[in-house]
């Protein structure tokens, strides 16, 4: 079995009385796009900061590329690229100078660095803006510059900490495509976000974090299997009688029924042909129906069931 790229064991981080990370453990294999999903304050950024030795921790162990991560482990740091949540570039330097500066913190050979900077500029599509100062760039372009500064030295492990916050949909897609491309080129990626759609789209494995703990870990499909819900059917319909509601609840595999705002929501746990059985029953009772939806569980459902709150609700 190969050595994991990242290994976190029983990590504990306290801020006075608050426990930010509570015996958090994780292993990330080479070539993965690993998603850290959780609401604000769940411990994602603290985990990343501990991982990068920007924060000291109270207990536990962190290994990267099989080597214990310490502030002075420059050999390991040389293979890590970081794209911070906040855009961290110099307003006083041009796009090219910024990328060159941050690449220069890893690559000292000028000729090699020049090649890498050009590749990074091309990768993020900032070719025509190379002489621009950051203040002249739009929010999306600024994010791309932020990414270029983090990946120019071609790291083996790249950490993206919420890179798409406050980014327009077009730039967001471009960023996500870029991350997938970096992964295809061989980089292992850690991606933190509270946008479930993004995590579902690009991550091969996901850890759900809440209150400093790892609540669940697995692939998208594995996480869905962890929960009771397998299918949710929504039907636009006039309010069924109590007897009919009771009959619907007694259909095979139904574990929850609810009627509100002209919509009947029926939740299933396992089973096949659930939709057909429900349609037959409602036709038999001569209900006229509007639109009908059948949805598989989303990560939000997974999150909801595991943490007890919806991810969006916990953001507020």
């Amino acid at each position: 079995m190969s050595t994991p790229v990242v290994k976190i064991e029983n990590l504990v981080k306290r801020y006075k009385e608050l426990i930010a990370l509570d015996h958090f453990s994780l292993e990330i294999e080479e070539g993965e796009v690993f998603g850290l999903l959780g609401p604000n304050g769940s411990g994602k950024t603290t985990t990343i900061n501990c991982l990068l030795s920007l924060l000291s921790y109270d207990k536990g162990n962190i290994e990267i590329f099989g080597s214990k991560m310490t502030p002075n482990n420059y050999e390991v740091k040389n293979n890590i690229g970081v794209v911070m949540q906040n855009v961290a570039v110099f307003d006083e330097l041009t796009v090219y100078e910024n990328i060159d500066y941050f690449c220069g913190l890893y690559v000292f050979d000028k000729a090699e660095r020049k090649k890498l900077v050009e590749e990074a500029i091309e990768f993020v599509g900032l070719g025509e803006f190379r002489k621009f100062y950051p203040k002249k760039l739009s929010g999306g372009l600024l994010r791309r510059l932020n990414i270029a500064c983090g990946i120019a030295h071609k790291p083996k492990l790249i950490i993206f900490d919420e890179p798409t916050v406050a980014v327009d949909p077009q730039s967001r897609n471009k960023i996500l495509e870029g991350i997938e491309k970096l992964n295809k080129d061989g980089a292992t990626v850690i991606y933190t976000s509270h946008y479930m759609e993004e995590v579902e789209q690009i991550c091969t494995r996901i850890a759900i974090m809440d209150k400093g703990k790892c609540r669940a870990i697995g692939t998208n499909a594995e996480l869905r299997k962890l929960i009771h819900n397998t299918e949710t059917v929504t039907v636009e319909i006039a309010k069924p009688s109590d007897d009919d509601m009771s009959e619907i609840s007694n259909l095979p595999h139904v574990y929850e029924t609810e009627y509100s705002d002209g919509k009947l929501v029926v939740k299933y746990s396992g089973g096949k042909h659930n939709l057909i059985r429900l349609m037959n029953l409602l036709s038999e009772k001569q209900y006229s129906m509007g639109r009908v939806f059948s949805e598989l569980p989303t990560l939000n459902d997974v999150f909801l069931e595991i943490t007890g709150t919806a991810l969006r609700d916990s953001e507020q």
């Binding site: 920007l54 420059y74 911070m84 961290a88 110099f90 941050f102 913190l105 890893y106």
Partner: peptide, 14 residues
């Protein structure tokens, strides 16, 4: 600057 220092301290530059 806070974010820049953090980015620099993440690098292999001591």
């Amino acid at each position: 600057k806070k974010d820049i220092t953090a980015r620099t301290y993440c690098s292999s530059f001591s």
